[in-house]
Amino acid sequence: MKQAEAVKRQSVAGKERYRVTLPVRWKEYRKYSVLFLMMAPGLLYFIINNYLPMFGMVIAFKDINFAKGILASDWAGFKNFEYLFKTRDAWIITRNTILYNGSFIIINLIAALAVAIILNEVRSKLLKKFYQSFILLPYLISMVIVGYLVYAMLSMETGFLNKSLLPMLGIEPIAWYSESKYWPFILPLVNIWKTAGYLCIVYLASIVGIDKEYYEAATIDGANKWQQIRSITIPLITPVIMIMTLLQIGRIFYSDFGLFYQVPLNSGALLDTTNVIDTYVFRALINLGDIAMSSAAGVYQSIVGFALVVVANFITRKINKDNALF
């Protein structure tokens, strides 16, 4: 009965036809209503936690006036950005962010790859597992704890370096937490200690996956260990190296906040060499309550960061489509 009616209507006119197809579509949706409902909490979460703040970026273009309310405040155009880029800070945080993260990517890659290759050479399964656990341990620890570990090393009056190591070498104690020139060396060291283990495990997993026959053939041909590493291991795990590295390059504008905030103990004397965009935004917002500056820096980070992800992905696509993220 209903079907006959539908057919009748469908033959009337284009406008009418629309009415008929719509309920059919709704029927299909109704079939999936439970699945849509299941997704609702998660989708709602992303709308609140991720999409609303994206629109909230307009704050950076406003002259914030709390009496009027945030969204009702007057437009300021690019004034907040002009102020931001006139400060010396803008240059310092950009330089620090890129130089630190750039060097982390390179240093971690070399260290993690080297350790993964060495670890793979270990014959004893038990020892291999043992080393793996130890290397991965720092990755599990929160940055607050890392801050304590570094403090135990560097504390002015009681640190291991100032009290035990430096006197042995006949060097005067150093005020690590107030001399900024040492931190471009300390931070990469701490970072490598904390995160290289993770990368190492990832690389190791892909090295283990390489077919043993390649190595057997190479040994028969008389290739030594070094030649095998260079012409079998590294070429075969290059896709994984590429993915991991490009993921990091795409995020080069975002720093490990804890590393730059906790580890230098939030010391003001070190800002020249420890302030990055993330810590700048945090301090401007929480300590100074300067919404104009912090939101301008935040938008700067989001836009450039997004551009970098897209470019990194574009390059990956050019080289090897399968490795691209999207």
């Binding site: 991720n50 994206m54 629109f55 909230g56 935004v281 935040g298 989001s302 992800v309």
Partner: peptide, 8 residues
């Protein structure tokens, strides 16, 4: 890929 940052 994209986020609004800490302030919003």
């Amino acid at each position: 890929l994209f986020n609004g940052g800490l302030v919003p």
